[in-house]
């Protein structure tokens, strides 16, 4: 008994061929993905092997879940995981909304030329690489010679210089501030682009009706970019186990390590540097699975909450 009628299949192909131009548009991306993302993905199997250079990826011995077990039972992993999650939550709560607020404020600014200047300047920190930022941070935060401590003491906020980098307690705040500094302009651009795309007629109509600034913002601007906001939100969720490797790696030290060690740096220390590529790959695999899970959950949540179509 034929379940699939030949008709369905032919219909599919006919429709497919009719869309030849759209399908062609998708093609370059797919080719690139296959060549550069999927081909090397076969290397993930080394997570289940004891990889050695000589035997190569396919020749190395199979060890199944040995690395998985050693990761789970490792006491330092739990702490690294805790830090990673805490930082990600803080990031979602602070670093995510900040550019939106910033963009809205910038949008409301009166002087258009100054507004452009501000927009340009806000984006400047994004150009600087983390390596340089993290090299400068100890200089800026140095207790006796850095300008941060000098400023805080000058304004009487603190009496004695504070060693920000040696205390675990400051590390979360430090990372968040640094990320804000670096990325607020970056994300704001996306929001500003979205705002720029809003139909001007709506604003004109609102003005005729006597709407105030706040009302315009509340009833036109924000709803219009709701799609963009939820989109970026979903994409950020998928980074929940991402963490900021550069900051933790470059600013981590004996004093603050109880807070600065995240999964990525731990993986780097134990895995890559020691040549334990199988171990490192297994950590990456585990992280990927969990991140994917979070993405799917987040997407479903957003769909329910905002009645937008989410990502899928």
């Amino acid at each position: 008994m034929k379940k699939i009628s030949p008709g369905k299949k032919t219909r599919f192909w006919r429709a497919f061929r009719r869309q030849w131009d759209l399908q062609l548009m998708v093609l370059p991306a797919i080719v690139v993905l296959i060549l550069f993302s999927y081909l090397p993905m076969s290397g993930i199997i080394i997570a289940f092997k004891d990889f050695t250079f000589r035997k190569g990826i396919f020749g190395s011995d199979w060890v199944g879940l040995k690395h998985f077990q050693s990761i789970i039972t490792d006491p330092f992993v739990h702490r690294a995981l805790y830090n990673t999650v805490m930082l990600s939550l803080l990031r979602l709560a602070i670093v995510f909304p900040a550019p939106l607020i910033f963009a809205l404020m910038l949008n409301e600014m009166r002087f258009p030329r100054l507004k452009r200047v501000y927009q340009t300047m806000s984006y400047l920190p994004y150009f600087v690489s983390w390596a340089i930022v993290c090299a400068m941070v100890p200089v800026w935060l140095a207790p006796n010679t850095g300008f941060v401590n000098s400023l805080l003491q000058f304004f009487g906020i603190i009496k004695e210089p504070v060693a920000f980098l040696s205390e675990p307690g400051y590390f979360y705040g430090l990372t968040i501030i640094l990320e804000l500094w670096k990325s607020i302009g970056f994300s704001a651009i996306i929001y500003l682009a979205a705002i720029a795309g809003i139909d001007q007629e709506q604003y004109e109509a609102a003005m005729i009706d006597g709407a105030s600034k706040f009302q315009k913002m509340r009833y036109i601007t924000i709803p219009s970019i709701r799609g963009t906001v939820s989109l970026l939100f979903i994409l950020s969720i998928s980074g929940i186990l991402g963490g900021n490797f550069d900051v933790s790696y470059l600013l981590g030290n004996g004093g603050n390590i109880s807070r600065s060690e995240i999964l990525q740096t731990y993986n780097y220390h134990m895995g890559i540097i020691q040549g334990r590529f199988s171990y490192a790959t297994m950590v990456g695999l585990m992280l990927g699975v969990v991140a994917l899970a979070f993405l799917l959950i987040g997407n479903a949540v957003i769909k329910k909450l905002t009645k937008t179509s989410g990502l899928f």
């Binding site: 100890p138 200089v139 140095a142 207790p143 006796n144 060693a163 980098l165 040696s166 004996g254 004093g255």
Partner: peptide
């Protein structure tokens, strides 16, 4: 012993010694 001795930036270390601080 100061707190930041445990996590001192190279420049701070150098300048402290250079200035005999």
């Amino acid at each position: 012993i100061k707190d930041d001795n445990f996590a001192m930036a190279q420049e701070t270390f150098d300048s402290t010694l250079a200035g005999s601080n």
